[in-house]
């Protein structure tokens, strides 16, 4: 019976997430459109609501091209490797006090660990295409991922020290009982988290692995149709997951004034967090590879460590 419930939960989350991705893309295009003095998609359905659905349909109907010189097996499996872990993240998220999947007592570690597998799919995809631009994109991707995984993990440690648990729900409960969201006491960590999450997700201004103006979309240059859709899906699924994690860690999860149900607050905070990304996409030029690495190792990691030390002192001092 339990198994059946879990499966049902997984299917519902998958469906919700697919819908979420659809509208996240529309939301992104609308936001960026508004910032760029143009209306954005507005032809399919009212307010362009069906635009992404039409796009996905188009992708599904397209021919699935496999380059002759590609490493075929890896080329085929890479999008799946990229997508599966991004979806697996959702297993440990809690959307409301009573809506949650696995109540892991190492929730944060699970989220960050599983998230890192996505990159493997991206790398294999880029490498197996046997395209020089894809290869360069993948190499950049690895370097970037290795560099930014560290500050991402380190930024969370402060919260773990304060709460004394790795469980995601307990972190939210702690914020409830303390009456303060972690964004205030852990502001430094929040900034580090935002920046390194952008880099982890390869979003502008850190979208170097797919930099379309120099590497012609990088790792997914050779992908088309359904498999390309899978990569896009993985990217946005991952993005939504990262936003959800940020919501739980820093913005108090489902907490909020009582007049709205918890999961609505949760969704609103996620949207806010994602809006921040889109805003940056519309505003900033792309950073340079060298600067990006330097920034991670020389600025973000020391900052994150500083935050950990400071938090530890405060924790000991406050008892």
């Amino acid at each position: 019976m339990d198994l059946l419930l879990w499966t049902a939960y997984a299917v519902i989350i998958l469906m919700l997430m697919l819908g979420g991705v659809t509208f996240a893309i529309l939301f992104e295009r609308k936001v960026i459109g508004a910032m760029q003095l143009r209306p954005g998609p507005n032809r399919h359905g009212p307010w362009g609501l069906f635009q992404t659905i039409a796009d996905v349909l188009k992708l599904l109907l397209k021919e699935d091209i496999i380059p002759a010189a590609a490493d075929k097996k890896i080329f085929l499996i890479a999008p799946v490797i990229a997508f599966a872990p991004a979806f697996a993240i959702y297993a440990a998220l809690a959307f409301d006090e009573n809506i949650y999947g696995a109540d892991l007592n190492i929730g944060i570690l699970y989220l960050l660990g599983v998230a890192s597998i996505t990159m493997l799919g991206v790398l294999m995809g880029g490498w197996s295409s046997n395209n020089k631009y894809s290869l360069l994109g993948s190499i950049r991707g690895v370097a970037q991922m290795v560099s930014y995984e560290l500050p991402l993990v380190l930024s969370v440690v402060g919260i773990v020290i304060l709460v004394g648990s790795l469980n995601m729900r307990e972190i939210v409960f702690f914020q409830e009982s303390a009456g303060i969201w972690f964004i205030i006491p852990q502001f430094l960590a929040f900034v580090v988290y935002i920046i390194s999450s952008i880099a982890e997700l390869n979003r502008a201004p850190f979208d170097l692995p797919e930099a379309e103006s120099e590497l012609v979309s990088g790792f997914h240059t050779e992908y088309s149709g359904f498999r390309f859709a899978f990569f896009m899906l993985a990217e946005y699924t991952y993005a939504i997951a990262i936003a959800a994690i940020a919501t739980m860690l820093f913005l108090g999860g489902w907490l909020g004034p009582a007049f709205l149900p918890g999961f609505v607050w949760f969704a609103l905070k996620m949207v806010l967090f994602m809006f921040l990304w889109f805003w940056l996409t519309a505003t900033l030029p792309r950073a340079r590879v060298g600067d990006l690495m330097n920034y991670s190792w020389k600025v973000l990691i020391p900052l994150a460590i500083l935050n950990i030390v400071a938090t530890a002192f405060i924790k000991v001092w406050m008892g």
Partner: peptide, 16 residues
């Protein structure tokens, strides 16, 4: 030029 270095919005401002 700004499109080349990865900023998309200036392009649309310039074309306006």
């Amino acid at each position: 030029y700004l499109l080349d270095i990865g900023a998309m919005s200036p392009f649309l401002y310039a074309f306006r």
